[in-house]
Simulated scan of single mutants.
Amino acid sequence: MSDERNHPIRFLLSDMDGTLLLPDHSLSQRTIAAVRALREAGVFFSLATGRPPRAMLQQIEALGVDVPTAGFNGGTLVNPDGSILVAHHLPVAAALIVLALFSAHPDVEVWVFADGDWLLRDPTGPMVPREQQGLGYAPVVVESFEPFLDRIDKIVAASLNAQLLIELEAQLQPSVEGQAQVSRSQPVYLDVTAMKANKGEALATLAAHLGVPMEQTAAIGDGGNDPAMFHVAGLSIAMGQAEETVKRQATVVTGSNVEDGVAEAIERFILSGR
């Protein structure tokens, strides 16, 4: 844990879904006020999410985020003006392995993110309405993912069968080791991104960009893709509803997202005593 007296936190990187956002994807007034207070205290604040960059715009505006943000689990870092700071695409060989495995399971909806779009072959899948509500835009229906293989940002296996995704994660890990990151961003989503597309790399890159030493960084999240930033942050904070495996990798635990856990963490662990 960062020693507040010797290493005060100067940069907080926050996950979005299940962390910053309520279950209906909205921001509470307490959270907005806490982020505002954080920024007024001179602490940088940014977002790291499995979402595409274009699905972060509403939250960026509401929170007044004025530094680069990390989409696709850190695969794409975007400047405030919308220009790309860093982009990591999934290797073609890894993408082919992933698509073949996911497509073999009828209970899995296969989504590909490329060229700024959300691509799928079946728009009638039961998970589509939920994702569309969360992203704020509709998918693009394609006959094949083949034309996009050389520029894929993320592949997602979406399924209401959470146990199946756990099994697919374990099965896929050795097949793409050294080529891709595999993590469950939420129980119903299994994400596959490039090796450097992880929140730990994102935190380190953003901290260097902002001139903040790593011991003065903090990270907060709830999902399986968040420990990557926990491991490199000066202070790591797990949400109250996170799985125990995630909590064990954090320095401290705050309230759940329905209990304004992010606001609580900002108030208790970062702003207290300033």
Results as ranks from 00 to 15, higher is better:
175 S>A: 15
14 S>E: 02
26 S>P: 07
139 P>C: 04
236 S>C: 08
220 I>G: 01
85 L>H: 05
259 E>T: 09
29 Q>E: 15
25 H>S: 14
97 I>L: 11
98 V>F: 03
181 Q>I: 09
180 A>D: 02
242 A>Q: 13
273 G>V: 09
207 A>R: 07
13 L>N: 01
240 G>K: 12
262 V>T: 06
95 A>Y: 03
203 L>G: 03
126 P>D: 10
268 R>G: 03
112 V>W: 00
89 H>R: 14
233 A>V: 05
239 M>H: 09
15 D>N: 11
251 T>E: 12
52 P>V: 03
6 N>T: 13
201 E>P: 00
48 A>M: 07
264 E>N: 13
150 D>Q: 13
267 E>W: 03
240 G>P: 15
263 A>L: 10
151 R>K: 15
237 I>E: 12
261 G>P: 08
263 A>T: 02
119 L>K: 04
2 S>C: 12
210 L>E: 04
178 G>T: 11
246 V>A: 09
3 D>K: 10
92 V>W: 10
199 K>T: 04
123 P>S: 03
64 G>V: 05
273 G>L: 06
224 G>T: 07
250 A>C: 10
233 A>M: 01
25 H>M: 13
249 Q>I: 05
101 L>A: 03
4 E>W: 12
114 A>R: 03
35 V>T: 11
211 G>A: 05
256 S>R: 11
214 M>D: 05
212 V>T: 02
143 E>S: 12
18 G>N: 08
60 I>G: 00
14 S>D: 08
226 D>A: 05
39 R>M: 13
213 P>S: 02
218 A>E: 00
63 L>T: 02
270 I>G: 06
71 G>Q: 10
178 G>Y: 12
152 I>T: 01
78 V>L: 13
87 A>Q: 15
23 P>R: 09
171 Q>K: 03
10 R>S: 08
273 G>K: 09
109 E>P: 00
19 T>D: 11
170 A>M: 10
79 N>K: 11
55 A>M: 05
100 A>M: 03
45 F>R: 05
96 L>I: 12
31 T>P: 14
257 N>F: 10
49 T>Y: 03
66 D>G: 02
99 L>S: 09
207 A>Y: 05
70 A>F: 08
173 Q>R: 15
69 T>G: 06
243 E>V: 11
233 A>W: 00
